[in-house]
Structure formats: C-alpha cells, structure tokens
C-alpha cells in the first residue's frame, strides 16, 4: 500500500472509531431519558458505569491521533482533520458526562412523582439525539453545510430550556415543596442545553476541518 493510501486508511479507521464513540454517547443520553421517564433506576446506574467506556475511548482516540501526527506528519487539510478528530472526542466526552449528570439527577429524584408530566425535557432530549446523529453523519461525510444547519436545532433546544426554566421558577414560587424536584429538573434541562451546545461545537470543528475557518454557531 502506498503511504498516502495508508494514511487515508488510518484516517478512515479513526473516523469510524469516533463515530462509535458518538453513537455510544447518543445511546447514553437515550438511556438516561428512558431511565428518567420510566423511573428505571438500574438503567440509571448502568449509564454511570458505562461512561467509563466513553472516557477510555476518548483517551484511546487521542493517542491514535497523536500517533498519526507523529508517524505521518500530515500537513494542511490532513493535519486539520486529525486535530478536528481530537477536538471532537473532547466534546463527545463532555456530552457523555452530561448524560451521566442526567442519570444522577434522575437517581436523586428517586421515588418522587413528577408534579407535572414531563413534556419539554423529553422533547429537548429528542432534539439532542437527532442533532447527535446528524452531526455524526456530517462528520463522516465531511459535510460543512449539514453541520451549519444544526445551529437552528440548537436554538430550538435553547428556547425549550428557557421555557422549562421559567416554568420551574413559577412552580417553585407557588409551592415550596416542589423546590428539590424543580431544581433537579432545571439541572437536567441545563445539561440538555449544554449537550446541544457541545454538538454545535462539534459542528464548528467539522467546518474548521473542511474549510480551515473558525465560525461561531453558538451565538
């Protein structure tokens, strides 16, 4: 195999590995939401345990990136792609942490009936998961346009977060006993909002990898 082909092959493998990590993170969020809505504590605990795999993958992929830079000494676009990979796994790892935070909040809410059925939070999570899948596809295809489009969905998540926050504050004022639950739900909403922000960060890195320009989608 010629050196160039070998390099491209390694880059493809690297991307596939990042893809796997992204899917694990997305699944962790899905499980966290399932645990929250169905009050499935075992599932909640398993998410916290599984996060170890995601953390290990981050380190593993970073090592691979470094090895690739050291051995192949890529330049220009090639180098950007490797750097992008490193930056993206950092974001993915943070997203995995947010899934864990949600699971922990869910465990703290143990046994409490929700004062009001959850509507907006599952909707936020749904949006996050769609964004997650989209951003991974865009990353695989190196599609900067699709990455840019995700900013719209992020705005939707932000708007829902605002709404949830307002509702929680009103609820807290009306009923003091609702305070602990409202606090956890506000946190969860906040984690989801951060989760979506990390996805737009990944979008930014995809755009950087493709064009070399830094853009800000989080404004």
């Amino acid at each position: 195999m010629r050196p160039r082909e070998q390099y491209l092959e390694s880059l493809r493998d690297l991307k596939k590995e990042i893809m796997k990590m992204g899917v694990l993170v997305e699944e962790a969020l899905g499980k966290a939401m399932k645990a929250l809505t169905e009050q499935d504590f075992e599932l909640g605990v398993s998410i916290i345990e599984d996060d170890e795999t995601i953390n290990r993958m981050e380190l593993d992929i970073e090592d691979r990136c470094i090895a690739l830079i050291a051995t192949e000494q890529p330049v220009a676009g090639d180098l950007r792609h490797v750097i992008t990979g490193m930056k993206i796994v950092t974001q993915l790892e943070r997203m995995g942490d947010h899934a864990v935070h949600i699971a922990k909040s869910m465990l703290r809410l143990k046994g409490q009936d929700f004062k009001k059925p959850l509507i907006d939070i599952p909707r936020m999570a749904e949006l996050c998961m769609i964004m997650n899948k989209e951003v991974l596809s865009a990353f695989m295809d190196d599609d900067a346009d699709r990455a840019t489009e995700l900013a719209d969905m992020d705005e939707e998540v932000d708007a829902l977060h605002e709404k949830v926050q307002r509702e929680m504050f009103t609820g807290m004022v009306e009923d003091e006993s609702f305070l602990p639950q409202a606090l956890q739900l506000t946190y969860i909403s906040r984690y989801l909002e951060r989760y979506a922000d990390h996805i737009t960060n990944i979008s930014e890195w995809i755009i950087y990898g493709k064009t070399g320009n830094h853009v800000d989608l989080n404004c």
Binding site: K16, M19, K20, V23, L24, E26, E27, K133, L136, S137, M140
Partner: peptide, 8 residues
C-alpha cells in the same frame, strides 16, 4: 455499519 445503523 456504525454510521448507517448508529447502534453500538
């Protein structure tokens, strides 16, 4: 497979 089915 991973990017098509997105299932670990």
């Amino acid at each position: 497979l991973i990017e098509t089915f997105m299932n670990s």
